[in-house]
Amino acid sequence: MSDLVANELPETLLAKLQKEHYVLLATVDVETKAPSVHTVSWVFAPNPNQIRFAVGQRSRIVENIEANPDVSITLIGAGSTYAIEGKARVVEKPMANVQIKLAKVEVDVTAVRDVMFYGAKIDQEPTYVKTYDEDAAAKLDNQVMSALKKDGTA
């Protein structure tokens, strides 16, 4: 289908990205120049024109974005599948006030496309569970999401 929805996040997608949410991130690999797909859950949209996410500061994602800022974020929800295109930049490495070394990345949204195939809709969104200590996961999640919600760097 790949219909252009908007040049910014519609309210339904903005609402989804106000809390931790499972998304797929596509970058261009720094060495092979091939598409590279990653999963990300620490994601937050402060407004309709921007998405922030956190990844390990030594992640291949960081290298890829520093070499080529073009990214696509796939969000499954609100009854469909959306490709959110944009330009990314690493804005903080490491992130302040987070117990592990992460990088904060900001994406300026340039297009939102409905990429669901014709004649279908999503009736159940993906879910996941953390497989490590619940208390440690909750503490880390709170630190990371608080840091993502802050404008700028420390």
Rank of each mutant, 00 (worst) to 15 (best):
106 E>S: 02
95 M>T: 03
121 K>E: 12
107 V>C: 04
23 V>Q: 01
133 D>W: 09
31 E>W: 15
119 G>S: 08
68 N>F: 04
31 E>S: 09
43 V>Y: 10
66 E>K: 03
96 A>L: 13
80 S>H: 15
111 A>S: 06
116 M>H: 06
47 N>S: 11
98 V>Y: 09
67 A>L: 01
67 A>M: 08
39 T>P: 12
41 S>I: 13
23 V>I: 14
117 F>W: 02
45 A>R: 11
67 A>G: 12
94 P>S: 04
18 Q>S: 10
86 G>H: 06
112 V>S: 13
91 V>K: 06
26 A>Y: 00
122 I>A: 04
35 P>W: 14
52 R>A: 10
60 R>H: 15
110 T>L: 09
46 P>G: 02
66 E>P: 08
103 A>H: 01
22 Y>I: 14
128 Y>F: 15
122 I>L: 10
25 L>R: 09
90 V>K: 01
73 I>D: 13
61 I>P: 03
20 E>N: 07
65 I>G: 11
108 D>T: 14
97 N>K: 07
65 I>P: 14
131 T>Q: 06
67 A>I: 00
24 L>H: 07
93 K>L: 07
44 F>R: 06
44 F>P: 13
40 V>D: 09
128 Y>S: 03
54 A>H: 06
94 P>R: 04
56 G>S: 14
61 I>V: 09
16 K>C: 05
115 V>M: 01
123 D>Y: 01
100 I>A: 06
87 K>A: 09
71 V>D: 11
37 V>H: 12
18 Q>I: 05
109 V>F: 07
33 K>P: 00
59 S>M: 05
121 K>Y: 08
76 I>D: 04
100 I>M: 02
22 Y>T: 15
116 M>S: 14
96 A>K: 10
41 S>M: 14
84 I>S: 02
51 I>D: 08
97 N>C: 11
42 W>T: 00
36 S>M: 09
34 A>L: 12
17 L>G: 03
129 V>G: 00
122 I>E: 04
59 S>R: 00
20 E>M: 05
129 V>L: 01
116 M>A: 10
